[in-house]
Design a protein around this nucleic acid. Structure first.
Length: 287
RNA sequence: GGGUAGAUGCCCGAGUGGCUAAAGGGGGCAGACUGUAAAUCUGCUAGCGAAAGCUUACGUUGGUUCGAAUCCAUCUCUACCCA
């Protein structure tokens, strides 16, 4: 059974759709959400509820400690065996999530690049951007010319590849994209589409229930553990709420705005995945 | 009732005679993105227009001026202070 991919922006109703599909076809759900991989982040990351988890087998939820760092390749390493295992039992993996890059790695593979190095990154973070740009330009002018040089992340990753591999990032990254069309033609998946007003209303509702439903306690518990989860939408905002910097209403508004912006980026990403079949939400029963 | 400060684009906010369709930020919209991705970055954001440009805009109404968001008067509203 080839996997089915259920994508869509945050709060679009992926989880419940995935559950109903999985029940229908005897499938099992595989997480494709970068933050739902983490244990202890269930509320903030809007992971499936205990009730939902009980309805159909779920995989790769809460499998990482908050202190562990992850990346797209690590995700693939986790997901591949799980998917094969499900298939070996004659079931269909229903891969569900909104992390576009992670999904892309899973479906289309990765270029042969070195894994990021925390120490090197810390070192680069301390240097001015112009510095990094200059070094990248010196080591690999081709890569520099096709990198958004205002984007510190992109510049330091390109430089990191050069430094860790001793080769040119441009050479290593070349050749990867050539077979995507062929791969895409074999993939089966949908992207959930909702109107903006609808999606925004759902986001607002979810933020409220998140804050009412244990987000404060969750963040309070995590605050001392690690910085790795700081990037999760809601984490920083709730922490500010806990410390009294902002009030509940402001917190809610900040989370809503950040979530809306994230959802917009997801829509942009999935729009480019031509193999995903857009499905207007009316095609499915609501949550 | 008296006094003071203020009213700027979707929101906050700068601007005290022409260089102002109006800084900056937020929000919104669009985009980029193969190992930090719920991250990071880019562009646009009064209306019409391909553009030149035209029109409408800085609480109200009127005035001064070649020219006003900027000066004067009036009124309305808001905040604070004194009664």
């Amino acid at each position: 059974m080839e996997p089915i991919y259920i994508c869509g922006p945050t709060a679009s109703g992926k989880s419940s759709l995935a559950i109903s599909i999985a029940r229908e076809i005897g499938g099992e759900i595989v997480n494709a959400d970068a933050f739902q991989l983490y244990r202890g982040l269930e509320v903030v990351s809007a992971a499936p509820s205990a009730d939902e988890l009980a309805q159909v087998p779920h995989h790769l939820y809460g499998v990482l400690e908050p202190t562990e760092s992850a990346d797209a390749q690590l995700y693939v390493n986790l997901a591949k065996p799980v998917i094969s295992e499900i298939q070996s039992r004659g079931k269909t993996p229903v891969v569900t999530g909104g992390s576009g890059l992670y999904l892309k790695f899973l479906t289309h593979g990765a270029a042969p690049l070195p894994t990021g190095d925390a120490a090197l990154r810390a070192e680069m973070d301390a240097r001015p951007l112009e510095d990094l740009v200059a070094e990248l330009t010196a080591l690999d002018p081709v890569e520099a010319s096709r990198t958004a040089l205002q984007n510190r992340r992109f510049v330091s990753r390109a430089l990191e590849i050069c430094l860790l591999s001793g080769k040119k990032a441009s050479d290593l990254r070349d050749g990867w994209e050539k077979q995507t069309a062929e791969i895409s033609s074999r993939l089966k998946g949908i992207v959930i589409c909702r109107t903006r007003p609808d999606l925004h209303a759902r986001i607002a509702r979810r933020t409220r229930s998140m804050l009412d439903g244990g987000a404060l306690a969750e963040v309070a518990a995590l605050a001392e553990i690690s910085n790795n989860c700081e990037k999760a939408i809601g984490f920083r905002e709730v922490r500010s709420l806990l410390s009294g910097e902002i009030d509940r209403m402001t917190c809610e508004e900040l989370i809503n705005a950040a979530t809306r912006q994230y959802a917009k980026r997801q829509e942009t990403w999935f729009r480019r995945e031509e193999w995903l079949v857009p499905k207007a939400v009316e095609d499915f029963s609501p949550v």
